[in-house]
Amino acid sequence: MKLTLPALGLAGLLVLAGCGGNLGSDGDSGSTAAYPERAVTLLIGQDAGGSTDLIGRALADPASKDLGQPITVQNRPGANGAVAAKELAAAAPDGYTVMVFVGSLAYITPLAVPADQAVDVNDYEVVTGISQDDFVLIAHPQTGFKTVQDIVAAKRPVKFATTGVGTGSQLTQTLLFAQAGVEATAVPFNGGAPALTAVLGGQVDVAAVQLGEAKEQIEAGKAVPLVTFATQRPSYMPDVPTATEAGFNVPVQQSRAIVAPKGTPAEVVDRLRTAFQKGFAEQAYKDFNTKRLLTANEVDGTALLQQWNGSLQTYRDLVAQHKIDLSAK
């Protein structure tokens, strides 16, 4: 009696080991004809509640209706999305794991981290672009700054808050102040909310955050918008000049896309794209974009990669030109 149980257990184990890792959480890469047969995981490389997370969730809902299977959102925050990207790369390319990839991870973070930590978006299969998010430079009202020229004229060192190392917030401000010849110190925070708080509280002079995050504060008069960093004035902020108009070459935007692991079959990618496009067309999603001050960028994979690779090259050049080191202390 005493031996039977362990023996049974051992036998059982051997049988199962023989079956191989047929586990519920991994994918069983069977035929793609019946895709999708089960839930699709949508990885998000940022914390729950942040812009990227909300975008992913807003999209997942209508897209899953079209797919006929649930799309489960899972947050894997860390390193501006590099952790999630690594997990995506290791996942089976069968269409059951996809990710919301932020542009800054592809075209800004590589400028700030060692080469072995940088993630290359070209190593992935891009399903579709989602939307673009513009940055706005805001100042605390007490500083008296209304335009970038005010900052230059003040002739004093400024402190600016960034949302982290390797983010658009850091790049925009670093480039701007380098071009304007302003002595500026970066104070990195962890995300948009703390950076915003720092400006609102007057601990720093200015900060660059995403439009959606700053809108309420601007409307309430707690923050003064100086410039946006889009190539043309976003429809949401018609009264704020762009950096280009102000005479500075800082065309930086945040962008997001859905990507899948390299090697995902073309039919699967197409199916996914169709589903997400159905999501884009939904009124609820459009309203979400409007509320969050996002600009749609629902292009296909090739076009998106062109955009992003182009951006990376542009920024590399700009950073080299102004001798900026994003990773420095």
Binding site: D47, A48, G49, G50, D53, L54, R57, A58, A193, K215, E216, Q217, E219, A220, K222, D287, F288, K291, R292
Partner: peptide
Amino acid sequence: NATMAVIFGALLIQGVTPGPQ
């Protein structure tokens, strides 16, 4: 904190933007 951030997100999805107003 993190929980508040998620609740913030939930409100946003609902179309309400928490803010001074």
